[in-house]
Amino acid sequence: MAPRTASHFGTRAAATVTLIALTVGAGLLQPAAASGVRDPVQRQDLARLQAQLKQVDRTIDRLAARQRRTAGQHPHVVLDVAALRADVHKIRSGIQHYLAPPRLPPRHPAPLDADYAKHSADDTP
């Protein structure tokens, strides 16, 4: 029987990722005008989430290393590390996109046509 991917992870990392996803999702569903990125509490909370995501990355690295070391001992369930990393990346990208939304493209003002140098009557050829 081939190994199957666990849909539920029995690890603290999976619970943390789920909690972060729910927290971020709830915050990002609010209209930007109502909550606003200018809200210092929200900005601080999102910064805290970004720091926690770094910890989640380290935990995923440890889980992946342990899974490589114990390969074959528990063949019936494996942690889909790639999918977990992809989900964490989506969360991180969502926070970054929310904190730094795309900006309007720079405006290109029309060139000025006037010649502002005045020539005196004595300079006439």
Rank of each mutant, 00 (worst) to 15 (best):
R69L: 07
L22I: 01
P105E: 03
R68V: 06
P106Y: 05
R92A: 10
R69S: 01
H119W: 09
Q44C: 05
D113I: 05
L46M: 15
R68K: 15
D80S: 01
L79I: 11
P31R: 13
P31V: 08
L84I: 09
R66L: 10
V24N: 02
T70H: 09
I20E: 01
D57R: 09
D45L: 11
A83Y: 04
D61M: 05
P40M: 14
Q42K: 06
A47G: 03
L53K: 08
A100N: 14
T16H: 11
T5V: 15
G10P: 08
D39Y: 10
D87F: 03
D122E: 14
T18Y: 07
A34T: 10
A121C: 05
R43W: 09
R58Q: 10
F9Q: 09
Q30K: 06
H8D: 04
I95S: 01
P3Q: 05
T59W: 14
L104S: 12
A2H: 09
V41S: 03
L49F: 13
A71V: 03
R48Y: 00
V24S: 04
H108R: 15
T18R: 09
H119Y: 14
P3N: 06
H119L: 12
P101L: 01
L29K: 15
D45C: 02
T18I: 01
V41D: 11
D87N: 09
A32H: 05
A83E: 07
V24R: 00
I91H: 02
G27C: 13
P3K: 04
Q50T: 08
L28I: 00
I91M: 04
Q30N: 06
D115M: 11
T5H: 08
R92W: 06
P111N: 09
K90L: 14
T16M: 15
A47F: 13
H108P: 03
R58S: 09
T11N: 12
A114G: 06
A117F: 11
A34S: 04
T23F: 09
D123T: 13
P106I: 05
D115S: 09
I91T: 07
D57N: 07
T23S: 07
H97I: 02
R103H: 10
G36S: 12
Q55D: 15
A6W: 12
K90C: 04
Q44V: 02
I20W: 00
I20H: 00
V88I: 04
Q42Y: 10
P125A: 04
P75Y: 06
R43E: 06
Q73A: 08
Y116Q: 00
H108F: 14
H74F: 07
Y116S: 00
D57E: 12
T70E: 13
R68M: 06
R4D: 11
